[in-house]
Structure formats: structure tokens, C-alpha cells
Amino acid sequence: MTPLPLLRVEIDGRPADAESLLHPATTAYGHFTAMQVRGGATRGLALHLERLRKATDELWGQELNGERVRGLIRHALGDTYPDASVRVYVHCPEITPTVMVTVRGPQRMSGAEQALQSVAYRRPAAHIKHLGGFGQGYYGQRARAAGFDDALLVEDDGTVLEGAVTNIGFLDDTGVVWPAGPSLDGITLQLLEPRLAGAGLPSRRARITLDGLGAFRAAFVTNSQGVAPVGRIDDTVFPVDEKLMERLHEIDAAVPWDTV
């Protein structure tokens, strides 16, 4: 999906200018989180703030106050953009981390089934939503050029990890199976996973390989923009399970919204 034009960029609560953008524009060392805002609220806000806090501590050994970040998001949205796609980037050019908030128009997954092309690539420090995603962009573009919607990242031995910008889940006779391996626990995954059992969909994590995909009845991807079915991975076809997708959408829609 092509990103919408930027509507606003603020760094530490001030409009970005050439000087304040110099460090973000010339370094790939940092991290971020992405969220959809509707009516000035988002889902999983505490998870977003905790993601940013933990990564800031791991990358620089610095504290990042969640309420400060929340206030910066609220400031960037103002009264102008109650509905938006928001990204919060953290850099540390000196001692104190800086927070950049970007605002674009709201986005949502189309819901159309996706075709994924597997590529042997594991993101470095995969548990962090870090900058410098050249590999993801490179393989995603090559997948689209080959007629797929995006790339599926796998180990050299074919162990499934994650989508280029998504998490992936599968359905078998036991319920939902998430790949076990180095990957990012997306916010939507974190919101859905503990709610699945209550909706009659037990879930677990297990090693999944490309040569074992035939054991699954369906597949789907998740990210901050929603949930969509997967219709094909390489040459393996998955019939869209309408009942599964209906339940996933119901669970997703029932997640509460947190006021920014």
C-alpha cells in the first residue's frame, strides 16, 4: 500500500524544520511504532507506549516517558486530524531521546486476499520495530514485481517468520497457529492473541515450515491497518475461510479504543 502524503511532522512537539530533521534524515538507527487513530483514539495505546519504552532502553539505555509521548501524539493531531495514520519515531542524536510524530490520512486493509512470496530473510533484532528496513522494502518490491502482494520472511531452512510488514497466522484443526521464531509481535497480534480462545479459536505458537503449509486450512495477516486473508504462499493455495475471517474481524472490532 502506497503511503498517503504527510499532513504534519513534529519533533518534540515543534514543527519539523531542516535543522531538526538532519539527524533523522541521516541515520537509520532508531525505532518506531505505527497506529491508526479514529476520533482521537487508538487501540492498544499502552502496548504502543511500552514498545517504545522498551526499545529506547535497549538501544540507548535511556528512559522514555509514556505520558510525554502520548502528549506529543495528541499535540500533533490537534483538533485538525481526529482520524489519521500516526507513526512515532524515536532517535537519540545526543543524550536525550527525541520523538518525531508523523501524521497521514487514515488507512485500512482492503480485506482482499493476499498472495505472498517467500524470501530467505530474517530481520536483525527482529523483536524491535526498528528503522532501516531496506531488506523488507527490497523483497517486498521484488514480490510485487513478480505478481505477489508482498513478501513472506522465512529462515534459510524454510521456517516461516513473519510478513514483510505483517504478522501471519494459520488455521488448522486445533485453532490458530502463529509462527514461533524471531519476529516482531505486532500490536494487532498482541491484541488478538489473548482474545482468540474466548471466541472459540484456541491459539498456540509453533514452528511452521514452507514444506508443511499443506497442513493448514487457511492463513491470514495482521498489522495496524487490520486483518486480511492470505490466498496463496508461493504455489500453496489457501481457500479463504469466511467463517474464520468473520470471527477475526469481530474480535478485532471488539478491541476497545483508548483516547490519546
Rank of each mutant, 00 (worst) to 15 (best):
residue 108 R to N: 05
residue 208 I to M: 07
residue 225 Q to M: 13
residue 91 H to K: 01
residue 168 I to Y: 08
residue 212 G to E: 06
residue 114 Q to R: 15
residue 190 Q to G: 13
residue 100 M to Y: 01
residue 232 R to P: 01
residue 238 F to W: 05
residue 219 A to C: 05
residue 204 R to A: 13
residue 114 Q to E: 11
residue 119 V to W: 08
residue 191 L to Q: 15
residue 96 T to V: 15
residue 97 P to E: 07
residue 100 M to G: 06
residue 118 S to N: 05
residue 152 L to P: 00
residue 192 L to A: 14
residue 218 A to Q: 09
residue 199 A to H: 15
residue 125 A to E: 12
residue 200 G to N: 11
residue 120 A to C: 07
residue 119 V to G: 04
residue 101 V to G: 02
residue 97 P to R: 05
residue 122 R to N: 00
residue 235 D to Y: 00
residue 215 A to I: 01
residue 221 V to M: 10
residue 173 D to V: 13
residue 225 Q to N: 07
residue 104 R to C: 01
residue 116 L to N: 03
residue 187 I to N: 12
residue 225 Q to H: 10
residue 218 A to N: 10
residue 215 A to L: 09
residue 192 L to G: 14
residue 238 F to M: 01
residue 185 D to E: 15
residue 137 G to K: 06
residue 138 Y to M: 12
residue 172 D to K: 08
residue 146 A to V: 04
residue 136 Q to P: 00
residue 171 L to A: 06
residue 163 G to N: 08
residue 155 E to C: 12
residue 225 Q to G: 04
residue 104 R to D: 00
residue 159 T to E: 03
residue 121 Y to G: 03
residue 179 P to M: 14
residue 200 G to E: 10
residue 168 I to S: 04
residue 198 G to L: 07
residue 121 Y to C: 06
residue 153 L to T: 07
residue 122 R to W: 00
residue 220 F to W: 11
residue 91 H to E: 09
residue 205 R to W: 10
residue 166 T to F: 11
residue 137 G to L: 15
residue 163 G to R: 05
residue 216 F to N: 01
residue 114 Q to S: 11
residue 123 R to N: 07
residue 164 A to G: 15
residue 214 G to Q: 07
residue 140 G to N: 09
residue 188 T to F: 10
residue 204 R to D: 11
residue 187 I to E: 06
residue 143 A to P: 05
residue 184 L to E: 10
residue 182 P to W: 10
residue 109 M to D: 05
residue 168 I to C: 09
residue 155 E to R: 14
residue 193 E to N: 10
residue 102 T to Q: 00
residue 132 G to I: 06
residue 128 I to P: 02
residue 196 L to P: 06
residue 155 E to A: 15
residue 147 G to Y: 07
residue 174 T to R: 15
residue 153 L to R: 04
residue 180 A to K: 15
residue 209 T to F: 04
residue 158 G to V: 03
residue 178 W to T: 01
residue 166 T to L: 05
residue 186 G to Q: 06
residue 127 H to A: 12
residue 91 H to Y: 14
residue 224 S to A: 15
residue 153 L to W: 10
residue 225 Q to W: 04
residue 125 A to D: 10
residue 210 L to Y: 01
residue 178 W to L: 11
